[in-house]
Design a protein around this nucleic acid. Structure first.
Lengths: 216, 216
DNA sequence: GGGCCGGTTTGATTTCGATCAATGCGGTCC
DNA sequence: GGACCGCATTGATCGAAATCAAACCGGCCC
């Protein structure tokens, strides 16, 4: 059933996997790599609405077109099911459907959490929140708990893509990273690696009252 | 089955239906009224992450606590199912589960759309977007198509709640409404009624390239 | 009526992030 | 090596929205 319908496909970094409004022939999940879900306004303003990491899925049963652009940030391998085939599987395998619902509800919570960041946080808090979220997700993907002292995060995005995620410009994003470094909250190693010496301290800077449990 | 497990409950305007982090004993849907889904940061900043109108639901199978505050804006009647009972129904009635998935996917798209508004739009565009969205949703609830000329929207929220929805302050929200009125894009009748003489014009102001079809 | 009270509007000023504009930095190609 | 190119950082200035502060308005109670 599931096994037979499965196929894999690789997208090089920078490729558009699906454009907004285009047909989504497959339901896929990310095996390796990283992609963004974004929208571009006519005048060129762009906003990322999601960051897809391994185990995240693309596409949805019952909707044939994508509402957003899906762009591979790094070389990305997708595990794919033909959409109508997948819908059939959903109907006949309650367990899959229920798992999908749980994942979707989690994504909904994450999207709403992000809404708070975009609507009410300062540039500094936005950057701090993003790093905290990314560190949590990466530790979850790696199946390793956050080390007590010193986490290193690999940024899968350029400054421009970070800015699009945060609703900021490249310049302010860069300035805030510099500012966080000067405050001793982070350490930079090239532009793609950030070490967080005290995770709790950064989480506080992110205005994150919640206990950042790994399992959400 | 469904019929027997059902109960109704009314919440007066201003009441908190569930607080963030509290137990969610029921899965409910709004019958009459209007509620917000919001989060408050320690320093008092507040962001609405959703506006719940009739037919929207509150709660989720598989999660016992609410991630957000749910507050009734007007007197609100909920149709409720005991949560564990509802989960049982979901497992045994694939049709319900699949309907719930569709609704959740729609909410996810809406949350992501809103993310774009919060992240990249100006105050004027935010207010215009909100009015356009609200008009579309109200016309859907009323099951009536948007009249070609002149829609009147009843705002179920105060300026403060609008500001919390838009990631703005009360003052800028109010100023933008005044500005849209002076531009002839809207007409105000008291602070809770807004008439939109030319819906398309307002949609353009909202940076809305999409054809705002009623059925999404 | 008059006074109060909550919400809304309007005004003056400040501030944070955007914009405009260099400069820096690492990699690659000649 | 040197020139170039794409990205990132830093600097100077501008502007949109926040903040501070004052009217305004409608409803309600005395």
């Amino acid at each position: 059933m599931l096994e037979q319908a499965k196929s894999y496909r690789t997208y090089p970094a920078g490729t558009t996997i699906v454009g907004a409004g285009e047909m989504l022939t497959h339901f896929s999940s990310i095996v390796i790599g990283c992609a963004t879900l974004s929208r571009t306004l006519e005048d060129g303003r762009r906003q990322n609405v999601g960051l897809l990491l391994p185990s995240d899925y693309i596409g949805r049963p019952g909707r044939s077109r994508s509402a957003f652009d899906v762009v591979a940030l790094s070389d990305t391998v997708l595990c794919r099911f033909e959409r109508t085939e997948f819908e059939k599987i959903c109907r006949t395998t309650p367990h899959i459907a229920s798992r999908l619902l749980t994942m979707t509800l989690d994504e909904l919570d994450a999207a709403r959490d992000w809404t708070v960041v975009l609507g009410r946080m300062t540039a500094r808090e936005k950057v701090a929140s993003f790093l905290v979220n990314l560190a949590r997700r990466q530790s979850r993907v790696d199946m390793a708990p956050l080390p007590e002292n010193g986490v290193t995060v690999r940024l899968p995005l350029s400054r421009e893509e970070m800015a699009n995620h945060l609703g900021l410009t490249i310049e302010t994003t860069s300035r805030q990273i510099t500012a966080l470094r000067k405050s001793g909250l982070i350490d930079t190693q090239g532009s793609r690696y950030i070490r967080i010496p005290d995770f709790e301290a950064l989480a506080i800077e992110a205005g994150d009252d919640e206990d950042g449990g790994l399992i959400v």
